[in-house]
Design a protein around this nucleic acid. Structure first.
Length: 237
DNA sequence: TCATTAAATTGTT
DNA sequence: AACAATTTAATGA
């Protein structure tokens, strides 16, 4: 089930195409950019691969170039709690990286993904030198706070259609996940894992949302037509 | 490039 | 959980 392959193997430098998928690069000065690019590494993760584990010391600040990751923790009872999915353009772990603590969650690939890593020392160097980078991180922290508050609401809702809608709205967040365009590449099975519902129920919810005109269901992905409608889903019955 | 085949994903029960 | 239908990806001429 859980492959032990980690990012520490199979690391390689970035291609120009991959660099363009990193949202904060453009905010740096030439000197800062050189330093960041020199340090950046990418690795391919297969489904089930752990990108980082709870309790491990932070060595990298991670971002998703392509694919889909899952952020979760295991509670005392041994049950896995999934917090959110991380689609392309998403960067995470800055909270723990700031404090040089240990990772507080597991990050696992849901599908074949390409993950970038910036060493924590370079992360701190950028914080010390780049205003643009600071702005990015601050914005990121603020946006994520809003998302986690929204996530609490989602958890307290029992209506599956609304849960799916709100979770989707979160994944389509353009600030946190600028790599996601009009179409989010995600299978209904993957969404089911993230939301904690059966694939059948997710399929039903997606059909309902499509009928309402807020999304369009496509093979291997979902197209957003009305993000506001997704966010403001109300429990109807 | 095209046709065939295998694999993945979806829709439904 | 199982199944058929549909779409995409892979293969090889």
């Amino acid at each position: 089930m859980t492959t032990e392959t980690t990012l520490h193997q199979r690391r390689r430098p970035l291609t120009p195409m991959e660099l363009s998928a990193i949202p904060w690069i453009r905010l740096l000065s030439a000197e800062e950019k050189d330093r960041a690019v020199e340090d950046l590494k990418v690795a391919d993760a297969s489904p089930g691969d752990m990108v980082c584990r709870t309790g491990r010391p932070v060595t990298y600040w991670f971002g998703v170039i392509d694919g889909l990751l899952k952020m979760s923790t295991d509670n005392a009872q041994g049950q896995t709690m999934t917090y959110t999915g991380v689609p392309p353009g998403g960067w995470f772990g800055e909270g723990t990286a700031l404090k040089r603590e240990n990772y507080r969650y597991n990050i696992q690939a849901l599908r074949k993904s390409r993950v970038a890593g910036l060493h924590i020392d370079t992360f701190h160097w950028l914080l010390d030198h780049s205003i643009g980078f600071n702005r990015f991180v601050m914005n990121q922290l603020n946006e994520r706070l809003g998302q986690f508050i929204a996530a609490r609401e989602i958890d307290r809702m029992n209506n599956p259609d609304v849960r799916v809608a709100r979770s989707l709205a979160a994944l389509f967040n353009p600030v946190l996940y600028p790599g996601v365009g009009e179409v989010l590449r995600i299978t209904q099975q993957e969404l089911a894992y993230l939301v904690g519902l059966s694939r059948q129920r997710v399929n039903e919810a997606l059909t309902t949302l499509a009928e309402q005109g807020s999304i369009r269901v496509e093979y291997g992905g979902l197209r957003v037509l009305d993000i506001a409608a997704l966010r403001s889903q109300v429990v109807l019955r």
